[in-house]
Amino acid sequence: MKRIFVIALLAGIALAALPFLFAEKSPRPYQGWVEADTLFIGAEGTGRLERVDVQEGGTVAAGNPLFKLETSSEEAAVAAARAALARAQAELELAEAAQKRPEEIDVLRASEREANARLELAKQDLDRTRVLAERGTATQASLDAAIATEAANRAALDNVRSQITLAHLPAREQTLRQAKESMAAAKAELASAQAALARRAVAAPAAGSIETLYYRLGEVVPVGRPIVALLPPENVRIRFFVPETEIAALSLGQPVRVTCDACRPSDARISFIAKTAEYTPPEIYSLEERAKLVYRIEAIPADPATLRPGQPVDVAAGARP
C-alpha cells in the first residue's frame, strides 16, 4: 500500500512538471549600458568668458545662445576694417570721377571762350587782309601774318578743348583697376573681422541637456578647450553585446526591450550591428559562462529621456520587423 502511494505521488509530480518542461523558455536578456555621444562645445579662440547663458542640468533649444567670450579686440578689428573700407570707397570714387574739380573745369571753359573770341577776331582780320591783298593795298607779309595768327588762335582753342575733355575723364585704367581691387580687399577684411566677432558668441547646434560647464564667468578659456558639454536626446544609444551563436537572430530595425534597476521598461530599435566579432569587454559581468567572441550592437531608445549615460541595462530581443 505504501509503495503504491509513493508511485502515485511521483506520477503527480511528473504530471505537474510537464507544462514547465515543455514550455518555451524566455530569451535570456543581454547585458549592456547606456552610451551617449556628448557634444563638447568651445570657442575657436582664446579669451575671457564674458557671459554664460545656460546652467548645468538645464536644457537648451537649438540656436539658443550658450556663452560669449570678451570681444574688445574683435570689435576694434571690425572698426578698423570699416575705416579701411571707407577709405577704399573714397579712393575708388575719386578714380572714377573726373580728374579736374568743377572749379578747375570752369576756368578751362572760360579759357575756351577767350580762345574762341580770339579765333573769331583772327578770322575777321584774315578776311580783311585777304581782300586788301587782292586789291593791292596790303602786302604779302601782312597776309602771311594774318594767316599765321588765325592758325595759332585755332590751335589754342583746340588745346583748351582737349584739356576740358581730359578733365572729364576718370583716372587711367590701371589706377581704376587698382582702386577696385583695394575696395574688394577692404570688403573681404571687414567680412572676416565681422565673422571673427560673431564667433565669440556660440549658440547651441542642437537641442539637448547641459551636462557640464567647464568654465565660469571671468575665467580665461584656452583655445580648443570645451566650455559646455551638450547632450542631444538623439545622441543617446543602448550598447550591448551578443554572443556569436545568437547574432543571426537579430537584424537592423528589430525592436528590443530595455530594462534597468532604476527606470521603467522602454522600447528601442537596433540601429547598428558590428560586422566583425570581438572579445567580451570587461564591463560585461555575468554568473553564467559566456562565449568569448561577441558582436557589438547599438539600439536607439524610443524615450531617451528616461535613460542616463553609463547606466547598466538589460536588453531583451523582440520579434523581427
Rank of each mutant, 00 (worst) to 15 (best):
S251I: 06
A274I: 04
I273N: 01
S271Q: 13
P243C: 05
Y279F: 15
D267A: 14
E283Y: 12
A249H: 15
S251V: 11
E246C: 03
Y279S: 12
I270Y: 00
A274H: 03
T280C: 03
E246K: 04
A249P: 05
E283D: 12
I273T: 03
A262G: 03
E246T: 07
P282M: 14
S251T: 11
C260P: 01
Q254P: 02
L252G: 02
A277V: 13
A248N: 05
Y285V: 13
R264L: 08
I284V: 14
S266K: 08
R257M: 12
I273L: 13
I247R: 06
E278G: 04
Y279K: 10
I270M: 01
I247A: 07
Y279R: 11
R269K: 13
L252V: 00
E246M: 09
P243V: 07
P281W: 08
E278F: 01
C263G: 02
I270E: 00
I247C: 04
A268G: 02
S266P: 04
A277L: 03
E283L: 15
R264A: 12
D261Y: 07
T245C: 06
R264K: 05
P282D: 14
E278K: 05
R264Q: 14
S271N: 11
P243L: 06
E278S: 08
P243W: 10
A262F: 10
P281H: 06
D267E: 10
I284P: 08
C260E: 09
C263W: 07
I270C: 01
P282L: 10
V258P: 01
R264V: 07
D261Q: 11
T259E: 05
I247M: 01
R257P: 02
G253L: 00
E278V: 04
E283W: 04
D267G: 08
T245Q: 13
C263D: 08
C263A: 10
R257V: 07
I270K: 00
I284Y: 11
A277W: 01
R269L: 02
C263Q: 08
E246H: 11
Y285C: 07
F272A: 04
A248G: 10
T259V: 09
Y279P: 06
E244D: 10
T245H: 03
T276D: 13
S286C: 11
P265F: 03
E244H: 06
V258F: 02
C260M: 04
V258T: 01
Y279Q: 13
I284S: 07
E246L: 08
C263N: 11
E278C: 02
Y285E: 15
R269E: 05
L250E: 06
G253P: 06
I247Y: 12
E244G: 08
C260V: 09
L252W: 00
R269T: 12
S286I: 08
T245S: 15
S286K: 10
T280K: 10
T259W: 00
E246N: 10
E278I: 05
R269C: 02
L250R: 07
P282E: 15
T276A: 15
C263V: 10
C263M: 12
I273G: 06
V256P: 00
F272N: 03
C263L: 07
T280E: 06
P243H: 12
L252E: 00
C263S: 04
I273P: 00
